[in-house]
């Protein structure tokens, strides 16, 4: 299947930006979802976002 490319510049800036790794991974998850659904005007994002928020907020708790 096609590699869903996020512009490398965005990726590089995300890697450079000062933040904890949990937050970085969370944002990567969001970006990959949005890239996959870029052609949809109103993608059904809610479930995927809920899943990511649930997972990464738990990681915040353990920090």
């Amino acid at each position: 299947m096609v590699k869903k490319e996020v512009n490398p510049l965005i990726w590089e800036e995300l890697e450079r930006y000062t933040m904890d790794e949990n937050l970085r991974e969370f944002i990567k998850g969001l970006l990959l979802f949005e890239r996959k659904h870029i052609s949809e005007e109103r993608p059904r994002y809610s479930d995927e976002y809920d899943k990511l928020i649930e997972k990464h907020s738990k990681n915040m708790d353990s920090e």
Binding site: N7, I27, L30, L31, I38, Y45
Partner: peptide, 17 residues
Amino acid sequence: VCQIELLDRCIHHLTDK
């Protein structure tokens, strides 16, 4: 074209969330 739209969408959807 440069996909800045992706960042906008994340911000928009997170605000809604």
